[in-house]
Design a protein around this nucleic acid. Structure first.
Lengths: 260, 260
DNA sequence: TTCTAATGTATCGCTGTACGAAACAGCATT
DNA sequence: AATGCTGTTTCGTACAGCGATACATTAGAA
């Protein structure tokens, strides 16, 4: 006899239901009764009840004292915590970075935001004859790198203001040193979703960077490509922009951005 | 035929296995193969494989690219996040607070740590004739309240040092104003697990407070009892101390402290 | 290469688990 | 008392999920 299963095609249906229950309760953010759950998930009370008992037994669901309703328990937050610890940026970015390099040929870089600047976590060397790139582990300033501008543009207003007030060190004659000019540049970056820094970090070099967001929705780093200015223009090609932003989005998703 | 079930007595066994898989992967913090999982959980490969497919389909488990192993996915961190948002201190503390008042008769209070002091979230009035207590929503200083000292004693060394360096305002002649004396007091509080502040906030009043910890292990607030000094001594009774600390621990557990 | 020994994945008939309907048990209102 | 809600329990039965076995890939050894 063929599968009927209303929810999601196939799979172990008992598990599907259990997960649906947990998800529903997590979304509700409050205790819900058996009947309500049964209606919401389109099944019977007995099924829901049996599953709730299982989940309570395991500690994933709890019953608030003096209540016969059910809500998500603290064990789920501990679980999420354990998982998020294992999802480090350098690791989940490894593959998108490789694909980005393979698609475009430029060096690819992932960086992480810190209070003092952008830390370069990992790089994948480009395919040009001359080796171009930033050293893994090095620190980039917020105002003179594509990575810094991409991250700063999507940071909180307070953090952005603090950086704008700080001393903006000069690296080349193209480095933006005026707070007003930098603020305007950041507005542009936020609108377009990517940043470049032609000749700002070093003469002849350019970087294209796009922001990465974590599961809380906060910016936590960037994905970028690095090469000579003749290969990455101040306004990069459609292909370069699309692929870099797509790679960044892919990393964001892998970190849990937009899940649930 | 009777239940045999190796894992945890009863419940929907398919769900039990699925949860065991997730937990195991979360604990491992890395990708694990089907065979290894089957051995670790004491079951067959086919069962594990079928369940993994279900979990992957739902997005809770992912397969790292170019790998046939399995690891926890970002959806779990989003889930944990959603749950932790619903576990606010005032809410989970409500019941332990009531029980504490019922057991001892004193006013019971839950407070939350903030950068500027301890915020009183909720109180349960005591059973004495005269109404004693702190107003809900009010702010208590770190150095002149049992709540502040209980929280500060278990805070990070940096945070503690910052408070010790700040101006210690005088409230009564019993307020501790010397940083050295306060540091010594905090060491004592940390050793014993509770704090009192007889006549420090106001003459004739005393509070007994014990720290609450969240799922990350950080102190996030206190549970306390408030009454006249003749009812709560500088060194409270064994019963008062035990019940207050037990209530605090209960709240900690409800917040996910020590889970997983 | 070819063999071996791992791995993950797919298949399939049997069985005992998880299912649904319906009865039960509290607890409010009416 | 009767009614309408809850959550909980029961029970016979269908079919979901089980394990053994076979298949598909890979990696290393001979």
């Amino acid at each position: 006899m063929p599968r009927i299963e209303g929810k999601s095609g196939d799979g172990v249906q008992a598990v599907n239901l259990a997960l649906s229950i947990i998800e529903h309760l997590a979304r509700e953010q409050r205790a819900v009764g058996v009947t309500t759950l049964a209606q919401a998930l389109g099944t019977t009370k007995s099924r829901i009840h049996r599953h709730l008992q299982t989940l309570v037994q395991e500690g994933y669901i709890v019953q608030p004292v003096d209540s016969d309703r059910y809500a998500c328990g603290p064990r789920l937050v501990a679980l999420g915590r354990a998982v998020s610890d294992s999802l480090d940026l350098a690791h989940v970015a490894a593959d998108p970075l490789l694909e980005l390099r393979d698609a475009l040929g430029h060096s690819a870089v992932v960086s992480q935001i810190t209070p003092d600047g952008m830390r370069v976590l990992a790089t994948v060397p480009g395919r040009s004859a001359i080796e171009i790139g930033v050293r893994s582990g090095s620190m980039l300033s917020f105002h003179s790198s594509a990575q810094g501008k991409a991250a700063l543009a999507f940071s909180s207003a307070e953090f952005r203001a603090r950086v704008l007030r700080s001393k903006l060190q000069v690296f080349t004659q193209h480095t933006i040193v005026s707070p007003e000019a930098l603020a305007a540049e950041l507005d542009k970056v936020r609108a377009q979703g990517w940043a470049t820094a032609p000749n700002e970090t070093g003469i002849g070099l350019n970087t294209l960077a796009a922001p990465i967001f974590d599961s809380t929705g906060a910016v936590c780093g960037t994905v970028g490509i690095v090469d000579m200015v003749q290969f990455i223009a101040g306004t990069p090609s459609e292909d370069q922009r699309a692929r870099t932003m797509a790679a960044a989005q892919r990393v964001s998703r892998a970190l849990g951005h937009g899940a649930l």
